[in-house]
């Protein structure tokens, strides 16, 4: 009989919604919530021996959380780790993907379940991900797919798209026989001949983000200011990249009413930074934000700002930064944000 550990967030173990999103990693024996139905579908051959859980903000926003989750999983000595289904939930999807990736890196078998548009998909690190619907009302079919995939994996088989496996085949570089210009002429002739499908690059899917509801009373809310304009302390202590950023950083605004020229610098490599450096408020409007705070138009200004460089940044990294920023801001109590872009 194979041993399975199931990973769920705070909501699906019944601990609460956003109010419990900061709860730390925890483990309990046996299946919980959707795990009970999954256990039924798996039958007597396999057993969910433990359910490990964590709040979404903690799992997606605190760097050490994933390691702690995997340590709890390892205590239960599983043959397979199952995470989700996370549907389209960003923080939960990221956590499910990262836990599956970290479990795989630790030598465990793992599978995650989420919607193909979930930003976590890019973070699964080679662990298989099977499709689920968009929301928890589609839990039934999601668990059917997941249970079938689990049985197949435990039988030592490889998942295919027919099993609900999602994710594009990796794009690999190669040398073509002819130049891109010559191939472009062929492609345009095919296009003129009526072929609308011919392309070397598949059309990407993009997230359609549903905006959060407007804040009803900003004078009681904490506002954060964020930027992709790469504004950092003059000596760039966190070594933020000028292009192809792989990270974001945070710097304190506590006790500051303005950003003094010369103490701050934009390291962005995508535009002339002369005017940004002459007045850093052009990138990060701390002066205006403090003014609004004094006037009572906003409750408080969040006491740190988050920053990255949006220049040649991959969509995958940008999505990850977005999910991490959302988790971090929720964690800190900020309920509104202004993100400046260059």
């Amino acid at each position: 009989m194979a041993r399975i550990v199931h990973y769920l967030n705070q909501f699906f173990i019944g601990a609460g919604g956003e109010d419990a999103a900061a709860s730390p990693p925890a483990s309990q024996p046996g299946p919980v919530g959707p795990g009970r139905r999954l256990a039924q579908l798996l039958g007597d051959e396999h057993e969910i021996v433990a359910t490990v859980s964590c709040g979404d903000d903690d799992a997606a926003g605190r760097p050490a959380a994933v390691g702690e989750i995997v340590a709890l999983i390892q205590e239960a000595q599983p043959d397979l780790v199952v995470t989700g289904p996370a549907f389209t939930s960003g923080r939960y999807g990221l956590a499910c993907a990262r836990v599956a990736a970290a479990a795989k890196a630790a030598g465990l078998n793992a599978v995650a379940a989420m919607h193909p548009d979930n930003p976590g998909l890019d973070e699964a690190g080679g662990a298989p991900v099977v499709a689920s619907g968009e929301a928890a009302r589609l839990m039934g079919p999601a668990l059917d797919t997941l249970a079938a995939a689990v049985k197949k994996l435990l039988a030592g088989e490889v998942l295919t798209n027919a099993d609900g496996l999602v994710g594009l085949a990796p794009r690999r570089p190669r040398m073509a026989d002819r130049t891109a210009a010559e191939r472009a002429v062929d492609l345009v002739l095919a296009r003129l001949a009526g072929d609308r499908d011919a392309t070397e690059v598949p059309l990407p899917r993009f997230d359609k983000v549903t905006p959060a509801p407007p804040i009803t009373d900003l004078s009681n809310s904490t506002l954060a200011i964020l930027t992709e304009g790469a504004l950092v302390p003059d000596d760039n202590p966190g070594a933020l990249e000028s292009a192809r950023a792989t990270k974001w950083l945070r710097y304190s605004l506590a006790g500051r009413d303005e950003l003094v020229p010369g103490e701050w610098r934009s390291v962005h490599g995508g535009f002339s930074t002369v005017w940004a450096n002459a007045d850093p408020h052009r990138i990060l409007p701390l002066d205006a934000a403090r003014q609004l705070e004094r006037e009572g138009a906003i409750g408080h200004l969040h006491e740190e700002y988050l920053v990255t460089a949006g220049n040649g940044t991959s969509v995958a990294n940008a999505r990850r930064f977005g999910v991490e920023w959302a988790a971090d801001l929720r964690h800190s109590g900020a309920r509104a944000a202004i993100l400046t872009a260059t």
Partner: peptide, 27 residues
């Protein structure tokens, strides 16, 4: 003609802003 930005392992979304009605791209 587009260059892809698909991440080091080639698993990320390749294009930052793609056309909506045109479909033919060279990589």
């Amino acid at each position: 003609l587009f260059a892809e930005m698909a991440g080091p392992d080639g698993t990320g979304p390749p294009i930052v802003v793609a056309p909506e009605r045109a479909t033919a791209m060279v990589s």
